[in-house]
């Protein structure tokens, strides 16, 4: 069965943009023990990089992140 992921567009977003445009996500990042908040390189990394680096489950991660109603910059 083909599982469709509705939130693939979030993958290419830059972490710094997400944190800036939707500051409520800061809490989520911290709760997941992701070090991006305050990191000097966060404008080089995408959500995809975060999922890969921290070995999160892509589907679950995107599902949760999408609940924050990310504003595109």
């Amino acid at each position: 069965m083909l599982i469709m992921n509705e939130h693939l567009e979030l993958l290419d977003l830059i972490v710094a943009d997400v944190l800036k445009s939707t500051p409520t996500t800061v809490k989520f990042f911290i709760s997941q023990h992701i070090d991006c908040v305050g990191c000097r390189l966060s404008h080089f990394c995408t959500i995809k990089d975060v999922i890969k680096t921290y070995e999160f489950d892509e589907q679950n991660f995107l599902e949760t992140l999408s609940k924050y109603d990310i504003q595109q910059l």
Partner: peptide
Amino acid sequence: KILKPHDLVR
């Protein structure tokens, strides 16, 4: 070229 920014920051 920085390939793994995360590890470098650590």
